[in-house]
Design a protein around this nucleic acid. Structure first.
Length: 539
DNA sequence: CGTCCAATAT
DNA sequence: GATATTGGAC
């Protein structure tokens, strides 16, 4: 294909002639992907032809997968295989479940790659233009993978020349911020589980997680937050207990601290833990542009509150989630979701004046030496926000201001927020080692009630062995949503007293496929020879 | 301007 | 490695 065989960049279609390689062990998935690709107007792609596929497999492998490679792997693993593909030139890989939106956007990876290639030997202005036109609404923060030398041209990058540091030194580049997606976090949790909560260290976790681009510092930072969260959770429970009162067999402090470590969630009385959830909808259309790096505001669009918990003077933990429909809002259930959990909003929050140092240290923690600085506003104080971003977890470009806010206490009031932000910034692309894209499942509809959910053995979540349950899932959208939203509860053998809690995430919501995909399965036939272990290659 | 949270410093 | 602080983004 010629390097500029891109059809109208403004469309969401693939550029004409783009080759996509899909790798998966499961022929069913390949078929699904084929359908989805077709839906994305990937015309001209020969992804359905078995013979050709087989040929292309060999050919492309020989060519080391020069162009776009989209490897679809199971969520839980085979990282090595994915990484192999990446090493061989894959632009991207997707994790199941794949959504339409993701497919629609993968061309951008090729686009980016090509731009990079072209830039190497000729001017790139026109390509940049194309980029801007074609990806304006898609190529925002976090689109490009790190490790790619392409500087985020459109980013208000910071250049450190203006501070007296070693300007221009590549070592002065800031690291890209890691977005702790649910997926990533669950890897983290799994690692913690494996190691044991008392013995965890960033290094061990990092090793177990097997996420190549992640650094020990990343993990350490996350671990810090994690511990903070757990300790706070425990404090809440202690307070709850102290204030006496609750009829619930509350999550014991021990579990709060060690919960993620041993996943020993206790059974709760179904009646008392019944949730009364109110869901507020916003117009999904307001939420378009999810591909941009502005996920968090979406969290405000919906909120499910567990009012029973609040009433019973237990901690009222709110679960905020957002459902963002894809720009192609018509038919597909490819609703982009960002949701966030926030623990907090409790009427019984710790206030700073409550002398945090008087608290007993949480299990597994040392005595706190200082009150946590961040807990000034406990009324809100979400401790963790798990974001389902559409964009890739590791964001490639990071920007910093040169000046602290304190340097300029009174910026010109007339400054639009963003022009202000841009000013005084120098640019610096951040290098990231990642070529991984982490995508998340998106519930199609918000759940309105999940109190009827039966306890579900956690094993199901990882093994998907329960056919009936699966079926049930797909039949019942609220099931899916509930599963996503109340994963920790459902993963254990009690029914959802506690709100969705990524830190207690013992389930992997991503092992579920969306309804859209699954409903097709029954009619699917094997498209390719199962012998082709690596799956379907689309060229 | 405040909050959130990963990065960075200690 | 733990924890405190910084700073970017929203």
């Amino acid at each position: 294909m010629d390097s500029c065989g891109f059809s109208s960049p403004r469309t969401e279609c693939f550029p004409a002639g783009l080759r996509v390689l899909v790798v998966d062990d499961d022929p069913t998935w390949l078929k699904i992907l084929e359908k989805m690709l077709k839906k994305c107007n990937y015309e001209g792609c020969d992804f359905g032809l078995r013979k050709k596929i087989e040929r292309n497999i060999k050919m492309m492998i020989r060519q080391e997968l020069i162009d776009c490679v989209c490897a679809v792997m199971s969520v839980d693993g085979e990282t090595s295989r994915v990484m192999k593909g990446v090493q061989h030139g894959a632009c991207d890989y997707l994790l199941k479940p794949i959504r339409m939106k993701e497919l629609r956007n993968i061309w951008q990876h090729v686009f980016r790659k090509r731009i990079h290639e072209v830039r190497d030997f000729e001017g790139h202005e026109s390509l940049d233009e194309m980029m801007l036109r074609g990806g304006a609404d898609l190529l925002d923060d976090g689109f490009f993978f790190g490790g790619d030398p392409v500087p985020g041209k459109k980013r208000k990058d910071v250049d450190h020349m203006s501070d007296d540091r070693v300007g221009g030194d590549p070592s002065s580049l800031k690291k890209a911020r890691v977005v702790w997606t649910v997926d990533l976090h669950q890897k983290f949790v799994k690692a913690v589980n494996l190691i044991g909560f008392e013995k965890v260290g960033p290094k061990k976790i990092l090793d177990l997680m097997g996420v190549p681009w992640l650094t020990r510092e990343n993990v350490a930072s996350h671990l810090q937050k994690y511990r903070l969260y757990l300790s706070r959770l425990q404090k809440e429970n202690e307070l709850r207990t102290t204030l006496g009162g609750t009829m619930h067999s509350d999550l014991p402090p021990k579990d709060a601290a060690a919960g993620p470590g041993n996943a020993s969630l206790q059974t709760l009385d179904t009646k008392s833990s019944k949730q009364n959830i109110s869901v507020h909808h916003d117009d999904p259309r307001n939420c378009e542009g999810i591909a941009k790096a502005s996920p968090t505001p979406m969290a405000e669009t919906k909120a499910a509150e567990i009012s029973d918990l609040a009433k019973s003077s237990t901690s009222s933990i709110s679960f905020d989630r957002s459902f963002v429909e894809s720009s192609d809002a018509k038919s597909e259930p490819t609703i982009q979701v960002q949701y966030s959990w926030s623990a907090g909003a409790s009427p019984l929050q710790f206030k700073p004046e409550q002398k945090p140092q008087a608290r007993a240290p949480p299990i597994g923690f040392k005595q706190e030496q200082k009150p946590p600085l961040r807990f000034k506003k406990e009324q809100q104080a979400p401790l963790f926000v798990a974001e389902h971003r559409f964009d890739h977890a590791p964001v490639a470009v990071h920007h910093r201001k040169d000046n602290k806010a304190s340097d300029k206490p009174s910026p010109t009031a007339t400054d639009p927020p963003y022009s202000k932000a841009k000013r005084g910034q120098s640019s610096k692309a951040t290098k990231v080692e990642s070529t991984a894209a982490l995508f998340c499942i998106q519930p199609e509809r918000p759940f309105t009630d999940c109190h009827t959910i039966d306890p579900i053995p956690s094993s199901i979540w990882s093994t998907k062995t329960s056919q009936s349950f699966e079926q049930n899932l797909y039949d019942e959208p609220w099931h899916i949503n509930a599963l996503l939203g109340t994963g920790s509860a459902l993963a254990s053998d009690y029914t959802s007293q506690y709100p969705p809690n990524p830190y207690l995430g013992t389930i992997d919501p991503f092992c579920f496929n969306g309804q859209e995909l699954i409903t097709d399965v029954s009619s699917l036939k094997f498209l390719i020879d199962p012998v082709i272990d690596e799956g379907l290659y689309i060229a």
